[in-house]
Write a protein that binds this DNA or RNA. Structure first.
Length: 454
RNA sequence: GCCCCUCUAGCUCAAUGGCAGAGCAACGGACUCUUAAUCCGCAGGUUCUCGGUUCGAAUCCGAGGGGGGGUACCA
């Protein structure tokens, strides 16, 4: 309607009658004439009722902000040029029994905003927009991957063995089987089983669950995209990630040059590629090597403020800790941080040139990880050894270390082709594209402590 | 988990040891072109909870609860 009639002169009438429904957001009753602002999913329009031309005027002035109404009338403009429905008939579709928030200030109390999201979404434009963008991003990613020959699949949410990431899981219980299960912490291992099964390009978008802290970039339930491509490696995954994210930005924001917070963020490919060791040298001024003696790395770590160094940490873990302490948060990106230590990457394939490293990277954008990718380890024997190392770490008290997944090793024994895989945190990508500072803003119903005695 | 901040009417906010208030919303009324309409009137409170100090507590102190920010773990 706006497309067709926005250009009308003030005081025009069209002889066109329409029926619209929506929610009354503003109300300006007069003596013999009322104006209201009706809002629906597509926008706002003025409705205009007058005693002169309709006996349905009676009662219109008593509508409350928040009431759902339907109106029928001619499309006109007022003397001031506002496009309006000149109401002939109206119906109360649903009455609001609670007072709507302040029509000017809206609702700012964060507790109310997230607990009563249905109110926030009506009153706060940015809140609604963030969820619209989220929906578009998911849809764009699907179509983009399908365009590259990927097939969307669904894998189990309940896992007998939580795998595919180092994270603490949620536990649940199946009564009939009298067995504990874990909510998945990653999609990885089942997707690679599907590649073993002959699906050469698969992806999944869905929730993963991690029993860990909540802050402005972490929620216990968040949405992951994982994709696996046979006959590809981590270089292919880097290309896929940068083009996928840039595609979403271009479609949603109209450009790949964004502003995030008070800084510029240019997502135009190609993104910088740099190794973790080079970046540490850049930011901490120290050249590390995976073959350095443990003592030497402990000294560097201590010097750079890494606390609580565990006796079980090898050189790889120490390097990762130094990276996270000195470098990760200093990066703005986008940048692909390449070549992680093998010790902290039990599912990634050995680096083709440097022993002790793996072909893995994390894309860092706006100072935080938005994903993780690698050339997948497809050697069953090595995979079993890596799992066993993890099991030893777990026995030594690392409750995030992985558990041996015998069936996954068995799948690898049947042969996983060389495969590249990636994971992207959808929520974090949406945060970038909506300039949201808090992950809750891009989740319809973020996890909160349950309301007391309600 | 630890540190700091915060919680007053449906919403947004005042009152800093001395009678708990305003704007918007609601309710009643006036108004025939409004745009956060305007004007008049009316009503609205366990000041998060419990305890303490005080002649007197929204205000100070303690404990608890909700929320936020920072920090640790994590993506």
């Amino acid at each position: 309607m706006r497309e067709q009639f926005d250009a009308l002169e003030p005081g025009a009438s069209t002889a066109k009658t329409v029926t619209l429904a929506g929610r009354l957001m503003l109300h300006r009753p007069g003596g013999k004439m009322d104006f209201g602002t009706l809002q629906d999913g597509s926008g706002r329009i003025q409705v205009w009722a007058g005693a002169d031309w309709t006996d349905a005027y009676e009662g219109f002035g008593h509508l409350s902000l928040g009431d759902w109404i339907g109106v029928t009338g001619e499309i006109v403009t007022t003397k001031r040029g506002e496009l309006s429905i000149r109401v002939d008939r109206w119906t109360l579709l649903a009455e609001t029994k609670r007072a709507f928030p302040d029509k000017w200030h809206g609702v700012t109390d964060v507790d109310t905003r997230y607990r009563q999201r249905y109110v926030d979404l009506w009153v706060t434009d940015e809140a609604r927009r963030a969820l619209v963008v989220r929906s578009k991003v998911v849809s764009l990613m699907r179509r983009y991957l399908e365009g590259r020959g990927f097939m969307e699949v669904e894998t189990p949410v309940l896992h007998a063995i939580p795998g595919g990431a180092t994270a603490k899981p949620f536990t649940t219980h199946h009564n009939a089987l009298d067995t504990d299960f874990y909510l998945r912490i990653a999609l990885e291992l089942h997707l690679k089983r599907l590649v073993v099964g002959g699906f050469e390009r698969v992806f999944e978008i869905g929730p993963v669950f991690r029993n860990e802290g909540i802050d402005r970039t972490h929620q216990p339930v968040y949405t992951m995209l994982e994709a696996y491509q046979a006959y590809a490696d981590y270089n292919d995954m880097a290309e896929l990630i940068e083009s996928l994210v840039a595609h979403c930005a271009a479609e949603v924001c109209g450009t790949t040059k964004l502003t995030y917070g008070d800084r510029e963020l240019d997502l135009t490919p190609p993104w910088r590629r740099a190794t973790m060791l080079d970046l540490i040298e850049e930011h901490a001024g120290v050249r590390l090597d995976i073959r350095m003696a443990r003592d030497e790395l402990v000294a560097v770590a201590t010097e750079h403020g890494v606390e609580k160094i565990d006796a079980s940490w090898g050189p790889g873990k120490l390097i990762l800790e130094i990276y996270e302490k000195t470098t990760e948060h200093a990066l703005w990106g986008p940048v692909f941080v390449l070549d992680y230590p093998l010790e902290v990457s039990p599912l990634a394939r050995d680096h083709r040139e440097v022993s002790g490293l793996v072909e893995r990277f994390e894309p860092i954008v706006a100072g935080r990880e938005i994903g993780n990718a690698f050339s997948e380890l497809n050697d069953a024997t090595q995979q079993r050894e890596r799992f066993e190392d993890q099991a030893r770490a777990r026995a030594a008290g690392d409750d995030e270390a992985m558990v041996v997944d015998d069936d996954y090793v068995r799948a690898l024994e049947y042969g996983l082709p060389p495969t590249g895989g990636l994971g992207i945190g959808i929520d974090r990508v949406v945060m970038l594209l909506t300039d949201s500072a808090n992950i809750r803003d891009v989740i319809a119903f973020p996890l909160l402590r349950p309301e007391a005695n309600s």
